[in-house]
Design a protein around this nucleic acid. Sequence first.
DNA 1: ATTAAAAATGCAACTTCATTGCACGTTTTA
DNA 2: TAAAACGTGCAATGAAGTTGCATTTTTAAT
Lengths: 136, 136
Amino acid sequence: MKKVEEKLEQKEIRPTAMRMLVLETLRNQKAAISLQDLEIEFEKADRITLYRTLKTFQEKGLIHSIADGTGITKYALCEEGCKCAPEDMHVHFFCNRCEDTFCLPKFKIPKVSLPKGFVTLETNLLVKGTCANCTH
Amino acid sequence: MKKVEEKLEQKEIRPTAMRMLVLETLRNQKAAISLQDLEIEFEKADRITLYRTLKTFQEKGLIHSIADGTGITKYALCEEGCKCAPEDMHVHFFCNRCEDTFCLPKFKIPKVSLPKGFVTLETNLLVKGTCANCTH
DNA sequence: ATTAAAAATGCAACTTCATTGCACGTTTTA
DNA sequence: TAAAACGTGCAATGAAGTTGCATTTTTAAT
């Protein structure tokens, strides 16, 4: 995998120490992560800086945000080559049991037919249920 | 269409004056409505009462809430016979232009295949773009 | 019909998460 | 090396949703 520094530069994000650490952390997550999660991970860092780091990452297309219905925004790394276009968009899964939110990048959102005159710019599919870990 | 009073009783909601008015209003909407919208509609009524009215309606399955990405929860009437099960769920559309949120009950969410071990309990599909009114 | 219990309403306050302003420090670049 | 741009940290603010409690209204039992 590409080094965090290169990855940031590829997305035109200046690779500060903070940002490299945050990206590193994002890479280590199995589930999507919230600002609060990050705060716990980086107790010494400022909440606002973390907030703005996520904001920047999102604007530059390094991560995408996920509204999983909990009211808390979660973030996850974008796939290589993702432009967050409708055809890029994958399914998000929220587990009611462990309350983790997952990207399922292998599972693309089927094209949705709409009434005449409606134009699609973006699609979000959120599935709620029980994840593989919690089903057993 | 069934009278509002009967409709409420059918859903085991006591038909108070307030609730009948709110249901009436919900029926007159083309787009989903927010708590704020209701407040404007009912200037004399208390915000909290409206809030709890919506809460009650939702718990009893008369309306469903829609997270359209704006951060403001919208509400719309459930279809006759809707149990808000995955197979009942329809597409929601958010128009970036007029910022209205629509239910598209004719357009059901296709069954989504998930990785092994994942169990679906609920699905939400939000499409963003331009609605028929705003496309011209 | 009268009264006790249950439910709905209204007011106030609070929680949580997201966001902005501004000062200070650091990095880039001319 | 100085100026400009950018990143960081602290404080304060904003918006939406939610809860507690007193009061009023409705329901149900005697």
